[in-house]
Every structure is written in C-alpha cells, then in structure tokens.
Design a protein around this nucleic acid. Structure first.
Lengths: 245, 245
DNA sequence: CAGTGGTCTAGACCACCAG
DNA sequence: TGGTGGTCTAGACCACTGA
C-alpha cells in the first residue's frame, strides 16, 4: 500500500532520518530537548534553512514540538492516529480484479425532510435527489448505498439517471475537491439491507456515513452498508505518516 | 476536533490559500497547469523559496503534482482518504467526562501459538504475555480487549499485572513511538464477547485489530471489540488534511 | 537544449519568552 | 535581554525532460 518511498538522499532528508532514528529508538525520550538549530547547522555543516526543513518535517509527523525561546523537544505521543482509505467503490472492486456493477434501486426528486436521518441539521426547502442502489462485485452484493444530493449545489445531477454509474463516482469526477466527515459504526442488517445484500437479517455490517461539502456548501451525504464479512477497512500509521494522501 | 488553526498570515500561507482556493473552487480543474514558480514569484513579489514552500504544501495535501520540466499541475483526485483517530481508551473515556475502569479477565504467560488468530505469521518459539480485560465507562462495558505482548521486545511487561492500568496505556507511555497497522471490521458478538460486554449475543460490534511494531520488531497486537451502539469512529478529510497528527 | 522544479546557501529581521 | 525559532531573501548549481 505504502509506496516504497525511495529514500531521497538529500541532506535535509538525512538529517531528518538521523533525528527520527534517535527518537524512535528511544535514545531521545519524550521531553528531551534536541540540539538547537544552530548546533545542528554546525554538526551537519549546512545552512539553518536545511536544518529547519528537517525539523519541520518531524513536527508535521508529530514527533517534535517547537517552543519559542525554549527550543525543540521530543513530543509526547498522542493518540494513535490511523489513516483509513475509503475509496470510490467501483475503483476498489476493479482494483481487486473483480467485475463491477451498480444496480439502481430507487431514484426520486423531493424536498429535504428534517425527519429523515442525516437531514435534520440542514435548512429545509431545498430540492434534493435521493438515489439508492447496490454495488455488486463479481455478482455478489458488496454494499448498499443510499445517497442524497443537493440539487442547489449540483443541478446537473437532476438530468442523470445513475443507473450505470453510481452517484459517488460521478461526483468524484465532477466535483473534484471536496471535504468530508465520516462516521463508522457497526449495525445489524435490517430487513431491507439484508434483502438487498443477500445476507441474513441481523448480520453485522459496517455502516459508513459520509457528509460531503465544498467551500462550506453541503453537496451530498451517503449511507453505505457493507456486510461485515466482505469488507474491512484497513489503516496504518507510523513513519510514513507525513506522506499526505 | 480540529484546532481552529489560526490562519498564520505569513506570505507562503497566503500564496497557498490563494492557489488552493482556485483549485477547490473549480477555477483550475484537474490537469490544469498552474503558473511556474518564476511567474508566481513575480506575481506575489517574493522569492522562489517562498513560492516553492506554498506549492510543496499543496503537493503534500494531494492537490498538486509537480513534473520536472513540464511544470506543476492540479492533481487528479485520488480515493477519499480519511483520517481516523483510534485513541487510548482510558483517555477517550475520561475525555468524555465519564469514569474509567479496567477489569482484568485473564493473564497468562505462554509461547506463541501459530494456531491462534493473528499469530500465524510470526516466528514461533517466542514467549508472550496474553492479557484480556474489559474497559468500563461509567460502569458500562465499553470494549473487550485481548492483547498479546512480545516479551522479547518488552521484558518488563512480565512483571506487571495490568489489573488497573490496561496494557495499551502502559505501552503508550513506555514504548512511545511505534508503527501500527489496523483492520476495522464488523462482527456479531459471540457468546464470550456478549457476556463480557453485557450485550445480546449477535449484536453488531466494531472489531479493531491493531498490530504494533517498532523499528521492524513486533511489539504487540490487540483485538478490541466495541458494541456497535456505544462507539463509533469518526473521520474527516479535506483542507486540514495536511495538519499531521 | 532551454526551462522546469529540487535543493541548498549565507545571510537577514522579527516576535517571542525564559532566565 | 539574549537566544530561540519563524520567516523570508536573492541568489546559486543541479538533474531532469519535454519541445
């Protein structure tokens, strides 16, 4: 999953790796004051900017805290932050080498309903498109999706059927840079989910709720139900934690 | 959750924010070539390093790709990567303002057993300490934990009882900087989990598996079972995605 | 082969704050 | 108040690669 990250043999990278090794090995415990930027500049015979770049990377990785006047210190470890990838489902399935198919179940235009789950905190009197369907992997149901799109934000969606391309894929290509909040919780499949997914009622499932917005406007939210035995989220954290997405 | 992130009114931050706004607003679509560093340097009347710093931040955030000779381009959005925090459980519960208690269920020294779940890929003939217990929040069971510690890596653990402080908390303080892999999956509570957690057998639960290592040596792995209705993982991604842990 | 990004230098001025 | 980190400058040389 993580790219091999070819170690760029740049000077700032070597300084960072050296300092990081001392921290991770325990030679420098949390709270330890690391040498000043001036001292490191002399030790590695380089300019202060290069030293600063290395330390900045460690700060971003959460290993070091800088305090003005006092110096830079090995940080106290925080919660174990993991990175979870929640990819576009068709891409995920095709990456596994399985065939993908989306089956539209329902599609209707309506007004926002404060009584519907997930819609209570939004202004009412907004026109939305509600779509539900099932994602199939190799002819086995993989996930059940119920999605609501804000037609004020994406009016073009009104003209689309979403009977082949699921709305999530279309949105990813159409509204590229969005922000989202996720909630992951375990539920027992209700009758509808069980029927749609071809599983026994009560089977443990992962429910992923996603609220997507852009520049402050809500775009869409989705409820995705994955049978517990067919999907799992994986996550990792550690030295590569700085690599961005 | 996210700190308000006081917008530091530094020049590189303003450049970054300006470029990011053009990307997120859709003014610059994926594939669009952004101005060269020289052009930006003239436009913002600053040095090339400052421009480069701003662009580097966008690269880290996944919004921009640099190609030598060709220039810098708005990236194609990847999977929606979310960040999940899986904190130390006592800290999590106390942060909610509830009282915390750990109840030790079993504790035994044994050799690694390739037949046990999670232990198959490790060398056998290693002495381990296996601990299981329940985390209580306000006298309600919050999570069931089963943990195996590698005594070759943490021999001190052999002398500890873990009847008050759970092993995870001790490890976090004692072996500060570790790497981990997580797997999150939904399961139906089996009889043992149901009894330990005071829930009905079959209730959907989140199972979090965590394998922890340091500098290549495995330290511990843990299986944590959370009742689906008492715990949820939350995640977010978006403009703050660069903020480190 | 010319222009791009990748990296680095040797300074500079500033705000901040612990001693 | 002196030393720390925070930021920025005006250059420089290099590797790479697309036109």
């Amino acid at each position: 999953m993580n790219a091999p990250a070819p170690p760029p043999q740049t000077l700032d990278w070597r300084i960072r790796a050296d300092l990081e090794g001392r921290i991770r090995s325990g030679e420098w415990r949390p709270g330890h004051r690391i040498p000043t930027e001036h001292e490191l500049m002399v030790r590695y015979d380089c300019s202060r900017m290069t030293v600063s770049k290395a330390i900045t990377a460690l700060v971003r990785a959460g290993l070091v805290e800088r305090r003005k006047k006092a110096g830079s210190f090995v940080a106290r470890p925080r919660a174990q932050t993991a990175v979870v990838e929640i990819p576009d489902i068709p891409a995920l399935i095709r990456a596994r080498g399985e065939s993908y198919r989306f089956q539209l179940l329902t599609r209707r235009l309506r007004m926002l309903d404060p009584n519907e789950p997930g819609e209570s905190q939004l202004e009412s009197d907004q026109k939305v498109l509600e779509v539900s369907g099932v994602h199939f992997a190799a002819n086995a149901a993989f996930a059940l999706e119920r999605r609501v799109l804000n037609l004020a934000a994406v009016p073009e969606a009104q003209t689309l059927q979403f009977d082949v391309t699921p709305p999530g894929t279309w949105l990813l290509q159409h509204i590229p840079w969005t922000e989202a909040r996720h909630r992951i919780v375990a539920i027992n499949a209700n009758a509808h989910a069980a029927r749609s997914l071809g599983i026994t009622r009560g089977t443990a499932c992962l429910l992923v709720e996603r609220h997507t917005s852009q520049m402050g406007d809500w775009i869409t939210f989705a409820r995705l139900v994955f049978p517990g035995d067919r999907y799992d989220l994986t996550a990792s954290f550690g030295p590569e934690s700085d690599g961005g997405q």
